[in-house]
């Protein structure tokens, strides 16, 4: 076991050395940790750094009301047609067709445009269940359905900060992936690198923009806006360093999954009840 570990450490450091050689002039300032989350937080560090944040989404509780999307738009002035968080509706029919939609990111809920139609006449489809309200054509009876809230996964092995050429995007010592909008050059490499579609280029600021887990709230002892407004408690947020926190208990007892685990991004946004068909 130890040998294996040593070997892995050797390969890692050898890989780093090789990468360093390739980047001819690459001499990072001494003392800078390569992976920020490995930093030891000193005694004089402000207490707002003495946390390690983690997010948990219980898909079995989400009702798809879109309150989180609306709250996020208000709290963070997210530009129209872009989303820091969004809600997807999954409907799987008996013939194994997966219908996914997220009209306006779930901002307005999932009611059809023409509510009057829904209120005056409920035309029952095929099997008699009232599902003629979605925007997708269904070929058969929906046997399985659920909502999946999505957002930045604040990965440990971040593909997006890895590619930022100017160190504008980084992971804070308390585990939040942030974008320094005064340094960002707007190359959108990070947008390409994110496998979850969590990033976008702000149409007015022309810099990368994304979910910050409401960094201005959590560092003041508040919860992220989307967690605050969730009526069913589907969204949970907490501090891993707080041994008595609810999230710690949930993380250690529930069966968890993450999005696209095969990419080894090590998301710190965990899911309960995530179906394998979720993209």
């Amino acid at each position: 076991m130890d040998k294996k570990k040593n070997r892995r450490a050797f390969i890692k450091s050898a890989g780093r050395a090789l990468a360093g050689l390739l980047m001819v002039v690459a001499i990072p300032k001494p003392g800078r940790a390569q992976r920020i989350h490995e930093i030891e937080i000193g005694e004089d560090a402000p207490d707002w750094l003495d946390h390690y944040w983690v997010y948990l989404i219980d898909t079995t509780k989400c009702i798809g009301c879109g309150a989180c999307v609306r709250a996020d738009k208000r709290e963070n002035s997210v530009p129209p047609k872009f989303f820091r968080t969004w809600v997807e509706r999954y409907q799987i029919t008996e013939d194994n067709h997966v219908h996914v939609d997220s009209p306006n990111g779930g901002h307005d809920g999932f009611l059809p445009e023409d509510l009057a139609q829904l209120l005056t006449s409920v035309e029952l489809e095929t099997d008699g269940s009232p599902q003629g309200i979605g925007r997708v054509k269904k070929q058969g009876r929906v046997t399985k359905g659920f909502f999946v809230p999505k957002m930045c996964n604040h990965c440990r092995n971040t593909p997006c900060t890895q590619v930022c050429p100017v160190n504008a995007s980084y992971q804070s010592p308390d585990g939040v992936v942030l974008v320094d909008k005064t340094r960002c050059i707007g190359c959108s490499y990070c947008v390409q690198a994110c496998p979850y579609g969590s990033r976008y280029i702000h149409p007015e600021k022309h810099t990368a923009d994304k979910c910050t887990w409401c960094y201005h709230r959590i560092t003041k002892g508040l919860l992220p806006a989307c967690v605050t407004v969730c009526p069913t408690g589907a969204r949970k947020f907490g501090d891993l360093k707080d041994q008595s926190s609810e999230i710690k208990k949930l993380l250690s007892t529930q069966r968890l999954n993450v999005l696209k685990p095969e990419l080894n991004t090590e998301p710190f946004c965990f899911y309960i009840g995530l179906e394998q068909s979720v993209r």
Binding site: K81, V98, N104, S198
Partner: peptide, 11 residues
Amino acid sequence: MIYSEYLFPND
């Protein structure tokens, strides 16, 4: 599984 067409809202 067959998927209906779906793009992430930011995509």
